[in-house]
Simulated scan of single mutants.
Amino acid sequence: MPGLYLLFLAISAAGIAALDVRHRLAMPVAPIRSTVAVVAGTVFFLAWDAVGIATGVFVRGDSPLLLGIDLAPHLPIEEPVFLAFLSYLALVVWSAAVRGRLRKADAP
């Protein structure tokens, strides 16, 4: 089913966003800084992908779950969405870990 991977990425991102908002971890606390971090991570990983594609290390696999739209050779449209999700997930996990360490340090 084409687009299923993109749908699951969107559902997963919505779940992480719900946790982020519920526990006030990243975006609700510092939206501009969080957005810059996610965009910077996404751009970094897209550059990494570009190098991998140019050197022949990364190739686009065939999957019926992809939409079939390429932004560039061997770069499906789902890739930047996945990289943004990965960056956002890392930011939320990092924020939760920092909060946990602060709480542990404050405990008597």
Rank of each mutant, 00 (worst) to 15 (best):
R33N: 13
V43Q: 01
A37N: 05
V59P: 02
L65M: 15
V38T: 01
A107P: 04
G15Q: 04
A18P: 01
V39A: 13
A40Y: 03
A10P: 10
S95L: 02
A50V: 06
I16K: 04
F58C: 07
G41K: 01
M27D: 09
I77T: 07
H23N: 14
G56V: 07
G100E: 03
A97E: 05
V21F: 10
F85H: 02
S63R: 12
I53F: 03
G52P: 08
I77F: 06
I11K: 08
A90H: 00
W48C: 12
W94T: 03
P31G: 10
G100M: 04
S12W: 09
I11F: 13
I16D: 01
I69F: 09
V39Q: 09
S34K: 05
A72P: 00
F58A: 05
L46W: 05
A54S: 11
A18C: 02
I16E: 01
D49G: 04
S34H: 08
W48D: 13
I69T: 10
P80L: 06
W48V: 12
H74S: 05
R33Q: 14
V36C: 13
V38G: 00
V43P: 00
F8R: 12
D70A: 05
D62M: 09
G52Y: 13
P31W: 11
A50R: 07
P28S: 09
D49V: 10
G3H: 10
P108G: 09
V98N: 06
F8A: 14
L71A: 09
L86S: 06
D62H: 15
A105I: 12
A30R: 15
A10H: 08
W48Y: 15
S34P: 07
G100R: 06
L66D: 10
T42H: 04
T35W: 02
A13C: 12
A90N: 02
A107E: 12
A96R: 05
P108A: 09
A13S: 12
V29Q: 13
G15R: 03
S12Q: 11
F85V: 01
W94D: 04
W48G: 10
D62P: 13
L66H: 09
Y5L: 15
S63N: 14
L89K: 00
V38R: 00
D70W: 01
Y5V: 13
P73G: 02
V43N: 04
R101W: 07
L6Y: 11
R99M: 10
L7Y: 14
L4S: 15
V98D: 08
L86I: 00
A14S: 11
F82D: 04
L25V: 11
R24D: 14
A84H: 02
S34F: 05
R24N: 15
A107K: 08
F8E: 15
A107N: 06
V57C: 13
A40N: 03
V92D: 00
L75N: 03
A18I: 09
V59H: 11
A84G: 07
R33I: 11
R101F: 07
F58V: 11
A107V: 02
R99P: 03
I53P: 00
R33A: 14
M1G: 14
T42W: 02
Y5K: 12
G56T: 08
V21L: 10
L89N: 00
A37E: 06
I69Y: 07
Y5S: 15
D70T: 07
V21C: 05
R99I: 08
W94M: 01
I53R: 05
R33V: 14
V29E: 15
W94L: 07
V38M: 01
R99K: 11
T55K: 10
R22S: 12
H74T: 03
P31K: 13
L6A: 15
